[in-house]
């Protein structure tokens, strides 16, 4: 085992006494306290502070218009311009999902369906939002551009069952997404 010799910094007398640092600390904390009481904390404006600290008062104030472009909210399923459900239930998201929040039951598309050539779609698609950690790996791994993290962050429920988003709910939140690669539409 390698020995790492740590050189502690040499302290001068004032630093050894420690009182100077204490006083400085008190000034620092009190400055913060006064500033935050006056609503002048650093970043209070850019974070749309409620006037106390940098915090937004949640139910009255909403973050919605401040959400950044890259915000990762609830994972959802999307349909495309043709109204086709894009998911083909390849189960890669189920595989990659770190907290194992996704559960897919694959199913076959009946032959009378206009998209019968796609052959496969999810029969059931459940995302347990209690487990979901909003990491976005499902979106990244999806080979069909079918699962996207939307900006919904208010995922609440009164029962555990309410927190499991089923296929209908996922499509309802996800909506239609345009401008995706339509690989099944080609003469293929």
């Amino acid at each position: 085992m390698a020995v790492i010799k740590l050189q502690r910094p040499k302290l001068n007398f004032g630093e050894k006494i420690y009182f100077g640092a204490l006083i400085k600390g008190f000034f620092l904390t009190m400055t913060h306290a006064v500033k935050s009481l006056r609503g002048k904390s650093a970043g209070a404006d850019s974070l749309a502070s409620s006037g106390l600290g940098v915090t937004m008062q949640f139910p009255e104030q909403r973050w919605d218009e401040h959400l950044p472009e890259y915000y990762r909210g609830a994972p959802t399923l999307v349909t495309d311009e043709q109204g086709r459900e894009r998911c083909v239930s390849c189960q890669l998201c189920e595989f990659i999902c770190p907290p194992k929040a996704i559960k897919i039951t694959p199913g076959e598309i009946p032959s009378d369906d206009p998209w019968a050539k796609v052959e496969k779609r999810p029969k059931e698609f459940d995302i347990d939002m209690i487990r979901c950690i909003y990491c976005g790996m499902c979106e990244e791994v999806c080979p069909e551009q079918a699962i996207f993290l939307r900006k919904d962050y208010l995922i609440t429920g009164l029962k555990r069952a309410d927190m499991v988003h089923d296929k209908d709910k996922l499509y309802q939140i996800g909506g239609v997404r345009t401008g995706l690669v339509n690989k099944w539409n080609e003469l293929k």
């Binding site: 189960q91 694959p106 199913g107 076959e108 496969k120």
Partner: peptide
């Protein structure tokens, strides 16, 4: 086995 489960599971 068609469309039942992916083999990596």
């Amino acid at each position: 086995f068609r469309f039942q489960m992916r083999v990596w599971f």
